[in-house]
Amino acid sequence: MRSVLHILSCVLALAAPGSAQDPVGVVELELTGPVETIGIDAGFERTDLSLGLLSGETRRLWSPFLSRARIGSGEPTPRITDPDEARRARVVPGTVERPIEWAELPVSLKSRGLPALRTVRPEVGALRFAWILAAALLVLGLRRRPAMAALLGVAAGLAVTWIPAAPVEQPVVRVLEGDLRSGRWLQVRGSRERLQLGEPSAGWVRHLPQAADLHLELRESASGVTWSICSPKSRIYFMEEVSIPSTPGLQGPGGHAFGEVWLREPGAAWSPRGPWAGEERLPDELEGAPGPPGWLVAGLPQGVPILAGRLTAEAGEETWLRLVGFL
């Protein structure tokens, strides 16, 4: 009976979908052009990278790769998948960097709610407005034949989706997750459809819905190498451990100015404190000011002082902070 249960649990473990967070590692590649795209196989998941390296160019660059953690799996070295690509690209030995196991992070960092993503809608545009106006006039013209009018309207509705539109750039939300008891910080960045990031770094990626296709893109431009996590019609989050210095004597994050902060002391409700320059004493409670957004305080531990805040806006990115064990 025990062996049956053991086999059953193994089968269920193998059949289970990937963990909530998929680790992203980085590896140094040596490339000789022409290289348009290459695939990296890290044992469980293939990563496709768009490079666009010209003929004769030789380059060494750090590249991210995706591996989907499975129970009982080892950690194979990433390799170039296609034999043709393998002649032009190779993994530099001893350069593989992976994040630590997600389970090793403090519970207070792991259990927090994901940030809410703002929705930016595409503009309907003059062409689409003209189309629906023309369709309405034609449908009204068929007032004596309602069935024909309905058919025309349905046809116009199907055709309107074919009108091309410029892609919409979705905003990036950044959250700094701090746990002063362990001194560890996690940076979470999130966006819809495509999350553009700077230098490749190891971390964890999460995308919702999880069944959606996920791939990484690496691009080189005059400003350097950037990479993106892409997943159509999904919310994408990238989490990485970062080092943030504390303000001396205050144990808060140094060098940050806040547009708005809230403090929750053990056994008390959230207390709004308004703007805070970061270096000085925390301001007194602001009577009548609004509380923190619901998603910001979801999943935070009880019984410890917590500081939550919105940092003053940087270009095109809103940044929030959640700090457990403040003061």
Binding site: V120, R121, P122, I132, L142, A150, G153, A156
Partner: peptide
């Protein structure tokens, strides 16, 4: 007659555009 057919003809192009707007916004 069934005048709701005229309403259907008028509303489908508008709701099709609204569907596209919501879908592109990631809903």
């Amino acid at each position: 007659g069934r005048d709701w057919l005229l309403a259907l003809g008028l509303c489908v192009p508008v709701t099709a555009v609204a569907l596209w707007v919501d879908q592109d916004a990631g809903l």
